[in-house]
Design a protein around this nucleic acid. Structure first.
Lengths: 226, 226
DNA sequence: ACTACGGTTGAATCCTGAA
DNA sequence: GTTCAGGATTCAACCGTAG
């Protein structure tokens, strides 16, 4: 299995991959959610989120993602309910929109306690390039996985490993290549190692890039020991 | 408690209500989902679905709904994942978008078995006019209610009574007035009787209008007996 | 006539939950 | 246990019309 980690701007780096003729079999990624907020936590590893409502980024990555994905490949993009409309429309401009999957978490999110319902969900838009068949039995659109506890997490929005493994298993084969252009702390990469997929991960932030490197290296070491 | 049932076009009838100065405290409605397909069922009470992708209708009702709702009131609008982006954007043009609630059903939908995940969910967009406080404890965005079995239902997509009662209780007080401009078989009206709310229901289809009349009359009779 | 295109019909088909 | 019916769909075959 090969793991390729790239530190840099995902637009530039994806263009370089395209220029080299790279194709991937599956995209699994968790882009910035276009929100301005700070995370309230005592864990100093976690940085405040400073997206400037960067809608253009989401728009700009779509043609690159589409170009990089092989025909018949799938994409899973995390998204929260606030921007589901924008994400769905952007994705639909290039890909075949298929499902909105619901990640059903334990616990509730924050937000105004009196005027809104607690958020126990996050969305994952599933789309394909051409016809893509899912592996295994017919699962449904509700994926129930516990959150990674903040105390154990190194990234502000770390996704459960089992959830990523599920998506990878549904939509790719062993030895396929998976791309995550917003790698964060590298959970997708670890999931790829566990499921025998090659991985290409891109991350802009140096701190997260190093964390991802370490996590993936550690997972590789553990795998060799087994 | 007063129940007002109107047979007619909801655009025209809502305009008449506005002209009379009517205001409602809550809107709960289940509009056509803008889909074209035929339903496969043996229940002869249920008509095939023949929406002609009437996007304009959804657009046109928004200003009327907004005008009819009192300041501080809420709206719950059912929607499926295929058109969630369109519904959310239309609603956001007038209302304060608050949450996408997930109705978690039993069973799965149909559709391509190989390329899509089975749908176990439907969406309910919760929005408000100005600030609206929810009643009772803080609930979350996942509402688990079993489907009404087709054999027991009189409408193609009858919603569970308990689900409607939940929404009504969260966002209105006894003696408030609730509007449903796509009444269908009148489940919202029955839920209003159960929760001591006044009800205004509008339905275009004569067949469903009569069914709603009967169901609501029956619910009233049962209530008087108690 | 032959293709291209668009709109409509109905077959398919698997997991779930109720019986 | 085991059987059995049904689902806010998608796909593909099939027309009818137009170029």
């Amino acid at each position: 299995m090969t793991v390729k980690l790239i530190q840099g701007d995902c637009l530039e780096e994806m263009q370089k991959l395209i220029d080299k003729g790279v194709k991937v079999d599956l995209i699994v990624t968790d882009p910035p959610y276009l929100m301005n907020y700070y995370r309230h936590t005592n864990n100093s590893n976690i940085k405040p989120i400073l997206n400037d409502n960067n809608f253009e980024l989401i728009q700009d990555i779509m043609p690159l993602l589409y170009e990089l994905l092989r025909d018949g490949g799938a994409m899973y993009m995390f998204c929260n309910s606030n921007h589901i409309d924008y994400f769905k429309q952007q994705i639909s401009q290039y890909f075949n929109y298929r499902n909105i999957l619901i990640w059903l978490k334990n616990g509730m999110g924050m937000g105004d306690l009196k005027t809104t319902y607690g958020k126990r969900t996050e969305f994952i838009i599933y789309a394909s390039k051409g016809r893509h068949e899912l592996n295994g039995r017919r699962d449904n659109d509700v994926l129930e996985y516990k959150k990674v506890p903040v105390k154990k997490s190194v990234h502000q929005n770390q996704k459960p490993l089992a959830l990523l493994e599920f998506l990878i298993n549904k939509s790719s084969q062993p030895n396929d290549t998976v791309l995550d252009c917003f790698m964060g702390s590298g959970t997708t990469g670890v999931a790829c190692l566990q499921t025998n997929r090659n991985f290409i991960g891109i991350e802009l932030d140096e701190n997260y890039y190093k964390i991802a490197q370490e996590r993936i290296k550690e997972a590789q070491t553990q795998q060799k020991l087994m």
